[in-house]
């Protein structure tokens, strides 16, 4: 295995507990966005560029947006 793959795997292995440990959902949305980017790097290191593209677009853009919107609705409830 190449060094890039080992480094990517290590980063993802650290990133997953970071996502779980961020208990406040607002912070967690941003950590999850960064985790999507790390996953994209890992998939790229595994010779899967289109899966990496998919992961970066979804995990870094679409998913945090949805989370933030859901949070905005929840926080806004007592109007």
């Amino acid at each position: 295995m190449t060094v890039l793959q080992i480094v990517a795997l290590a980063l993802v292995a650290v990133g997953a507990p970071a996502v779980v440990a961020a208990r406040d959902p607002l912070r967690q949305a941003f950590v999850a966005s960064f985790y999507g980017l790390l996953l994209g790097v890992l998939f790229f290191a595994f010779a899967a560029p289109d899966v990496a593209l998919s992961s970066i677009v979804i995990g870094s853009v679409a998913l945090p947006t949805i989370i933030l919107l859901a949070l905005a609705k929840i926080g806004d409830k007592d109007s």
């Binding site: 560029p49 289109d50 593209l53 998919s54 677009v57 979804i58 853009v61 679409a62």
Partner: peptide
């Protein structure tokens, strides 16, 4: 090239 309907749709 890498891509397709799924990625392009999300973009």
């Amino acid at each position: 090239t890498p891509g397709g309907g799924f990625q392009g749709g999300v973009i």
